[in-house]
Amino acid sequence: MKKAERAAIYGTGRAYWHRLKMDLIGHKWLYLMLLPGLIYFIIFKYLPMWGVVISFQNFVPFSGVFGSQWVGLKWFRYFFSNPSWTRYLANTLLLSVMNLVFYFPAPIILALLLNEMKHARYKKLMQTLLYVPHFISIVIVVSITYVIFGSSGIIYKLTQQLLGTEIKYLTDPKLFRWMIIGQSIWKETGWGTIIFLAALTNVDVQLYEAAMVDGANRFQRLWHITLPAIRSTIVLMLVLRMGSVLDTGHDHLILMANSLNRSVSQTLDVFVYQQGLQSGQYSYATAIGLLKSVVSLILIVSSNKVAHMLGEDGLY
């Protein structure tokens, strides 16, 4: 909203503050209900943000935030002087792009498929079964992968028999990202359908009936009615996703990493974990975390802009 527009609606100067006061008094119960949420965000989200100050210090827990030595941009220089930082960034981005291309559309497609199901009870059963993997810990998912893809595992033996070559699923760096994406899809696709299925229930049934009268086939109905109806949800999810492009998580990757695929499994998150928790370099890890946050902020703001340009509501 432009400044002039806002002034036209709410007035300027004293008039604005007067209106705000009247509004606060008039809707005092609504504002009171907002308070707990506001307090939560201040205490748990905004106050801890001051912790980023340690990324400019040589932080020693015993000396505390106020007693630690101020080193300015030392840790940022340290990070960029490490010849491997481009590799960490490339690994992070590649994994994220693959996530976006292969993992992001999966729940949408699955939700559309579920939506087309005629038999209501069978659909319910399928939904429930599809949610199950979400509740399995990633540690278990990785262990299962090791059992079936390892050199005595069923899939390894199967491909060995069929193709005549040994495919090293667990150690080949070329296959590493596919394994990660595959596991993510297996685990989270079913759960991810929830939000799209909810959006799909809002589609007016009369639209389908009218389209059927006009002679639209199933695919045409899907393309012209269903997809446009959930488009804003998809864009919203995509914008949110953009904010976490640099978040690869570390637990899943560390579990799947080994000495032969380290060149592709080292992402920024894994590096932060190694430096911060394993080596106790809190300042260094915080500095890299801060860099990541800045990039994420830029991405989320610009992708929201793009969404607006395309005529969508976007995130805000």
């Binding site: 340290y78 490490n82 491997s84 080994n258 000495s259 032969l260 380290r262 590096f271 190694q274 430096q275 394993q278 080596s279 370099q281 260094y284």
Partner: peptide
């Protein structure tokens, strides 16, 4: 060592494993 030790040791160890495994 305090700053880069973990990453550097990891680098060596990975290469040694790859060498042992004939990669």
């Amino acid at each position: 060592y305090n700053s880069f030790g973990t990453t550097l040791s990891q680098m060596l160890e990975d290469a040694h494993v790859q060498y042992i495994a004939g990669i």
